[in-house]
């Protein structure tokens, strides 16, 4: 173990801890304190009220749809960017990040205009009898848009770094493309893929700006948890806002812990890093 020879450690660490402490930890701790203050009985009553449960169910369902879509599409996207050369590839590579660079309110406004009954996409879809705006499908589309880059950007570098020799060895032993994809490539990219899906899911669960434009926000039907929190605040019902926010925060942490645990388990089992 080498001695620390560089200066500035205490200053840098002090600044970091102070910043994270006041900007990130203090508010989250205050939120948890407020939620704990409510008392377990009232807390449970708030969370299990029909409107809360409906919002939780809508949010979970639509976030799952959005994440499932991005798992498939993001994986294909990452593969295409990492493995093929074609004209316009650099543009495609840049376009991936637009959902992160575009403010969520702008995305929500644009998606609502596109899928409105007289919109570019909404009009043809309406002829098929499919309505997107003010339905859970619209919520899922908004979530899928804002969380699109996560799977692509976590999986793409891993596919680029995959050693070709293992694939070539498998190929020379007569393995088919599907076999190699399933038994060689997928296990190697799985931890990154899972991390990407988990980030996309977390983002979808908490998405607000993009969703509220397209959702219609009908209580019990198309009201997401983040909006319900916001409405409780506007009603000055602070205990309810605290309780619902605390549940969202705990869900986000549980997701992080679960992702790390599955990754660790996978690394142990498959022996890949």
């Amino acid at each position: 173990m080498r001695r620390r020879t560089l200066p500035g450690f205490s200053l840098a660490l002090g600044t970091t801890v102070l910043y994270l402490g006041t900007i990130v930890l203090l508010p989250l701790a205050a939120l948890m304190l407020k939620a704990a203050d409510i008392g377990p009985e009232r807390f449970v009553a708030i969370i299990t009220s029909p409107r809360s449960l409906a919002a939780i169910s809508v949010t979970l369902t639509t976030a799952l749809w959005a994440t499932a879509f991005n798992a498939v599409y993001g994986l294909a996207f990452a593969w295409v960017l990492a493995r093929y050369d074609f004209p316009g590839k650099r543009i495609l590579d840049a376009v991936v990040d637009i959902p992160f660079a575009l403010p969520t309110a702008v995305a929500g406004l644009a998606l609502t205009a596109l899928f409105a009954k007289n919109g570019w996409f909404g009009a043809p879809l309406a002829e098929w009898g499919l309505q997107v705006v003010y339905t859970p499908l619209g919520i899922a589309i908004a979530m899928a848009f804002t969380s699109l880059p996560f799977v692509v950007r976590t999986v793409q570098p891993v596919i680029e770094d995959l050693a070709h020799d293992v694939e070539e060895a498998a190929r020379s032993l007569g393995a088919s493309d599907l076999d190699i994809a399933r038994r060689v490539i997928f296990p190697a990219i799985f931890p990154a893929f899972l991390a990407g899906c988990s980030l996309a899911f977390a983002r979808s669960l908490g998405e607000f700006g993009a969703v509220i434009f397209i959702a219609g926000n009908q209580p019990m039907k198309t009201e997401i948890v983040a909006l319900l929190t916001f409405i409780r605040l506007e009603e000055f019902d602070y205990p309810a806002a605290a309780a619902i926010s605390a549940v969202m925060l705990l869900a986000a942490f549980a997701l992080l812990v679960a992702t790390n645990a599955i990754q660790a388990w996978h690394v142990r089992r498959a022996g890949v890093d």
Binding site: E207, Y238, S245, M248
Partner: peptide
């Protein structure tokens, strides 16, 4: 732990962040 902490805001809903700040600096906050 510090690295994990830096990443926390990525996973927290912006609405939750806003509410959390309300409970620090708002009239009913700390």
């Amino acid at each position: 732990l510090l690295i994990a902490l830096i990443d926390v805001p990525y996973s927290v809903s912006p609405i939750v962040a806003g509410v959390a700040y309300l409970f620090v600096y708002g009239a009913q906050g700390l």
